[in-house]
Write a protein that binds this DNA or RNA. Structure first.
Length: 418
RNA sequence: GCGGGUAUAGCUCAGGGGUUAGAGCGCCUCUCUGUGGAAGAGGAGGCCGCGGGUUCGAGACCCGCUAUCCGCCCCA
């Protein structure tokens, strides 16, 4: 059988890579303005890292880890998310407690062993941001503001951010009981999945799509009614900061998120253009995570934004991506012009112009065809005639207009016409 | 991990037991010996996803596998 890409992985082809490059450029340019610096961590980690942070009963850990044993019998996991590795690195390299708030950005592949479908891959990619060391809701607001402004900047448009607060341990313990009591006897009517959730993490009953559960959850009092005083104040402050920043947000009592490490603020942005995998990005605060990993208690907040999903939305909106267009195609019209053509191509490249040259001794017509095909704007033609007068025929492909000019004026002429 | 659909040329897709498997687009050559796109003519290109089975005969029917799509679970 012919070897194909592993299940749930994708090749990024040359015709598509400009889209990714564009999104990456915009992401790092924008976040740099807020003081974020890129961090790169390994693609795989000791599996314990994720077991400790995401929670043994979370879906990611219990069934979606892409793990294996290496030749040294180490239990390795391809990272299923971005936050825990960054925190591990921050602790390991002593980035904490240096008297400043740490802001880090990253663009990474991550891996989850699930059943692929549109917008869900085994190897997917995300942009991530982490603000480490600030307990303030201003940090939450900053992250959300960046996310909203990023989606606007890449022309997904003005998005609505769904926010919620799930408080801390005390609040959640109380709220677990509230949810369980509320569902109470009806639990028996629900499906196996829902009963399983009730066992492991009752909060997750709230994002169930089961019709009966949906009916029941509508009448559960929202978790924000049970927040600790401080959590409550923070959540209110966050809302007023978002209002002040003109962010379009909505309270979403049913977003609870699948990872154990979240505290207080959780949020996500969804799109109706993504089918079942509707989440464009998700994030929240994780004040306990660093201590869980053996670091000093360090309140932090972060977000992960799906790259494939952003591109799916942009494609469905038919947004045009800036495309790297070939600029000049140097055409060798006669056999004696080889040296002149190669020299000209070098000169143009030294002037910063993308320049293509036929490698295979194709006929002139075929070279022009190539020029057309690679999307060149101009052809620069040299043959015996031009050679004699140190000239070049400068042709604009779209209009078919051409003129013969001194060869040393070509670079400037091209730049004038761009 | 569960349920359902799909798999034929580079791409989009027809063909539903019977000789040498088709179309459109794309590609190559020529008409056109220093000029791309248009038109015409010619041409190349298929383990019909993989493996097994039924049959005189399988691209077609059956089973398994793999991949992909849709939904569930879950999430980016």
């Amino acid at each position: 059988m012919r070897i194909q890409a592993p299940r749930g992985t994708e090749d990024l082809l040359p015709s598509q890579s400009h889209k990714w490059q564009h999104l990456e450029r915009e992401f790092f340019a924008l976040t740099r303005l807020y003081g974020y610096r890129e961090i790169r961590t390994p693609m795989f980690e000791d599996i314990e890292l994720f077991k400790r942070t995401s929670g043994e009963t979370s879906d990611i850990v219990s069934k979606e880890m892409y793990d294996f044993y290496d030749k040294g019998e180490r239990h390795i996991c391809l990272r299923p998310e971005g936050t825990a590795p960054v925190m591990r690195a921050a602790i390991e390299h002593g980035l904490l407690n240096q008297g400043t708030t740490l802001r880090m950005s990253y663009a990474i592949p991550f891996f989850r062993y699930g059943r692929p479908q549109k917008g869900r891959l085994r190897q997917a990619h995300q942009f991530g941001l982490e603000v480490i060391g600030s307990p303030s809701p201003a940090a939450d607001a900053e992250i959300i503001e960046i996310v909203a402004s990023y989606y606007e900047r890449i022309r997904i448009g003005k998005v609505q951010v769904m926010i919620n607060s799930i408080g801390r341990a005390e609040c959640r313990a109380k709220y677990r009981e509230v949810v369980l009591n509320h569902f109470g006897a009806y639990l028996l009517d629900l499906g196996e999945d829902e009963r399983d959730k009730a066992q492991k993490n009752p909060l997750r009953l709230l994002d169930s799509k089961d019709p009966k559960a949906a009916e029941l959850k509508a009448s559960v009092p929202p978790i924000v009614n049970y927040l600790e005083d401080e959590a409550k104040v923070n959540f209110e402050t966050l809302q007023s900061l978002l209002t002040e920043a003109d962010i379009n947000f909505r309270l979403a009592p049913d977003i609870v998120r699948g990872l154990d490490y979240y505290t207080d603020t959780v949020f996500e942005v969804v799109s109706d253009r993504l089918g079942a995998q509707s989440s464009l990005c998700g994030g929240g605060r994780y004040d306990g995570l660093i201590r869980e990993l053996g670091g000093p208690p360090t309140p932090s907040v972060g977000v992960g934004m799906g790259i494939e999903r952003a591109i799916l939305v942009l494609e469905s909106l038919e947004v045009q991506f800036p495309e790297a267009k070939a600029i000049v195609y140097v055409v060798q019209a006669t056999d004696d012009a080889g040296l002149a053509c190669r020299t000209l191509a070098r000169t143009l490249r030294n002037q910063g112009l993308e320049t293509h040259l036929d490698l295979d001794g194709k006929k002139m017509a075929a070279q022009l065809k190539q020029a057309d095909r690679v999307g060149a704007r101009f052809a620069a033609i040299i043959g015996t005639d031009e050679l004699a007068s140190n000239a070049v025929t400068f042709r604009e492909l779209e209009t078919s207009s051409q003129e013969t000019i001194p060869i040393n004026q070509l670079g400037q002429r091209v730049k004038e016409r761009l």
